[in-house]
Write a protein that binds this DNA or RNA. Structure first.
Lengths: 218, 218
DNA sequence: CGGCCACTTGAAAACCTTCAACCTATGTGG
DNA sequence: CCACATAGGTTGAAGGTTTTCAAGTGGCCG
């Protein structure tokens, strides 16, 4: 799939650096490695691969996640100037598979071993800004799922993010049904009915805003 | 809505710093300003306010965007240890309104004037990691919209991100209908029909994967 | 030319939204 | 302390949208 050799360069010397960084760069500021071109369909990395951060120079990458049930979903697009694989630095491995949707070129950015200190402030600063500007982060993983599953995914996600001591402890949702609906793209009534179904299927216990994961059985 | 006084502190001295940063901090490393507590319903900032970056210490914030048609949508949640307002540093102003869903406390992080150089590498590094770990970025703005609008929003968004020279120029979508559908949470057939409707309404011209924005009229 | 893949179209079924009514909890003023 | 007002929550039925299934078309490459 991938052929050719990678070449180490400084972005300041790259003719297309404005597309990537949006401004002229002082030399020595951003060190990158241009990867061999990706033909249509080639994969830059797979979900689960070792962490690695890239910036798209030309073309277009599609990001896909494999779901537990074996199906795949597209969770993002990356166009020139956008970052690919940033999430991997927080999770230790790639969170999605990146595949070229059209012939593409990318450069690998070497994050100087995180923790090495204040050495590369300028690069970090640029990356942070870019990251903040990035339009999408693995967009709504529940898009396309039936309403019941969307609500279940939301509750599950919430309970993980809130640092709940014991998974069995009941907790209180701070949101109204209308807010949950607005967040998931569902009508409030649908949220109510979905919670009802989940309750009945013993996947969780709901009373008002109080929720407990896993029915009496689990 | 907001009462009390903000107090400048160093996160290293804060009893709850592990919740925010997940590890012990060397003193002098992260300087923050604890804001007065937010009661339920209080707003930390409004969409359009001046840029500002906060970290949630306790409680829960809901992020809402006002849509052109006047309606509001919930686009995100922030729980303790998560960042609020990061996007504002890339866009110059807050991209959403942040409101306390339950009584909450937040600290404001002072990003030393961006561009000031490598001074605060450690903080930048932490922020970048946090940003990469952040589960959601203003999640799918098209959730809940009818299929036709979702597809329209997707095409519009794509054409803006690709740096297309003239808005009238036709361009080529690198994705199949199935991929677009997977991304938007729609069946491929629905994407086809939606494109048909948009074409017929002269909102865009589609032939195969070639698209031109705005009908012959615009 | 044949095969494959993407794309398109139609009809039935499933799902979700909408509308409307009603219920429950909470808090306020009398 | 009770009556009432309000906001959130719940339930049912009708209607619209989307999905699914099935069949057929078109382009590209061996």
């Amino acid at each position: 799939m991938r052929a050719g050799t990678a070449t180490e360069t400084d972005c300041a010397w790259c003719p297309s650096n404005r597309r990537c960084w949006g401004e002229a760069l002082p030399s020595e500021s951003v060190h990158a490695r241009r990867e061999p071109p990706l033909e249509r369909g080639a994969r830059l990395f797979e979900q689960g691969d070792a962490a690695g951060l890239y910036i798209v120079s030309s073309g277009c990458l599609v990001l896909r996640v494999s779901q537990p049930d074996g199906s795949q979903r597209v969770v993002g697009l990356r166009l020139p100037g956008e970052l690919v694989g940033l999430e991997s630095y927080a999770h230790g491995q790639q969170m999605y598979t990146a595949q070229a949707a059209s012939p593409s070129t990318v450069c690998r950015l070497h994050l100087p071993a995180l923790g090495a200190g204040a050495a590369h402030g300028a690069l970090l600063e640029r990356l942070l800004l870019k990251s903040a500007a990035q339009p999408e982060r693995a967009s709504a993983p529940w898009a396309g799922l039936p309403a019941v599953e969307r609500v279940a995914a939301f509750i599950e996600n919430y309970s993980q993010r809130a640092h709940l001591s014991a998974r069995e402890d009941p907790f209180k949702l701070p949101l109204t049904r209308a807010d949950i609906g607005s967040y998931l793209g569902l009508a409030p009534e649908t949220v109510v009915r979905a919670l009802g179904h989940l309750s009945q299927a013993q996947r969780l216990a709901v009373r008002g805003r109080t929720v407990r994961l896993g029915g009496p059985a689990r």
